[in-house]
Simulated scan of single mutants.
Amino acid sequence: MNDGLVDAFRHNAWATGELLAVAQNLTEDQLHATVPGTYGSIIDTLWHILSSEASYYTRLTGNRPPWYQRGRETPSLAELATYLDDMAQRWDRFLEEPFDAERTLVVAWEDGFDRDVPAGVILAQALHHGNEHRAHICTVLTSLGIPTPDLGVWDYAEATDRAKRRTS
C-alpha cells in the first residue's frame, strides 16, 4: 500500500545489516572504539539505531517489540542481528496497510514541552536517524583504518537487484 516507502525502509535495514556484518569481524576493542563527534562506540551506536527504531515503531503502532527496553544494557551482535530482522519484518507489515501521515502523536520534546507531531515526521525521523548514526559508525571504522561498506541507496538497489542491469 505504501509502496514508495518500502524501498526506503528496506534500504534502512539493509544498510544497518551491512554494518553489522562488518562488526562481526571486529575485535572487542574495535567494537568499543569511538571518536569525537560520533554518538559513541560502534556496538553502542548499533544498539542506539535499533532501539530508537523500535521506539519510533512503538509510537506509530502502539505495539512494542518484546526485546525493546529503554536503558537496557547493549546486547550482543547476534542479538542485534535478530532485532534488525524483527524490525525489518515489522516495517514491512506496517507498510502493507494505509496509514494517516497527518495523524498527530504527542511527543515529549527535549525542551520539556510536549509537541504534536504528524506520523509522517516520525517515519522520516526513523529513516534519517539510521542514516546519521550509520555515518558515525563509518567515521569510527575509518579512524581505525577499516574499510567501510558502500551504504547508499544505489548500492542497496544493486545489491538487492532493485536496479537490474539491462542486457540490451
Rank of each mutant, 00 (worst) to 15 (best):
L20S: 03
G40H: 05
I49R: 14
R72A: 12
V117P: 13
A78M: 11
G130L: 10
T34L: 13
N12R: 13
N25L: 04
T16M: 09
H129R: 14
W67F: 03
T139C: 06
L84R: 11
A23E: 03
G152N: 10
E28Q: 05
R59A: 03
A23F: 09
V107W: 09
C138I: 11
W14N: 03
T16R: 15
P66A: 06
D155I: 03
A78P: 01
I42K: 15
I43R: 02
L26V: 07
W91Y: 07
Y56R: 09
S143E: 09
T82P: 12
T45Y: 00
A13I: 05
L19R: 08
A101C: 10
G37V: 04
T58F: 08
Y39E: 00
F99W: 07
V22A: 00
P98M: 05
E28L: 14
L77H: 12
N25A: 00
G40K: 13
P147W: 01
L95N: 11
P98F: 00
D44L: 15
G4T: 06
T104W: 06
L80V: 14
V106S: 14
T104S: 05
S168T: 08
D85K: 04
A15S: 04
Q24I: 02
D111W: 06
E73R: 12
R166E: 04
S76L: 10
G37D: 01
V121C: 10
M1Q: 10
E53S: 10
G37P: 01
L95D: 01
E18W: 04
D29W: 08
G112M: 14
N63F: 15
A124D: 01
S55C: 07
G130E: 01
S76Q: 09
T148G: 14
A15C: 02
P36K: 13
D85P: 02
R10K: 10
N131Y: 15
A163T: 06
I49N: 12
K164Y: 00
A163N: 10
Y57S: 05
G145H: 02
N63C: 15
L105I: 05
V35M: 14
T74M: 00
H136D: 01
T74G: 04
I49M: 08
V6A: 07
P66T: 06
G62R: 11
E79P: 15
R90V: 11
A21Q: 06
P98E: 00
G145E: 00
W14A: 09
E132Y: 14
E96K: 12
I43G: 03
Q30L: 13
D86Q: 11
D161G: 09
S143Q: 05
E53I: 04
Y57C: 02
E132Q: 15
T167N: 13
L95K: 12
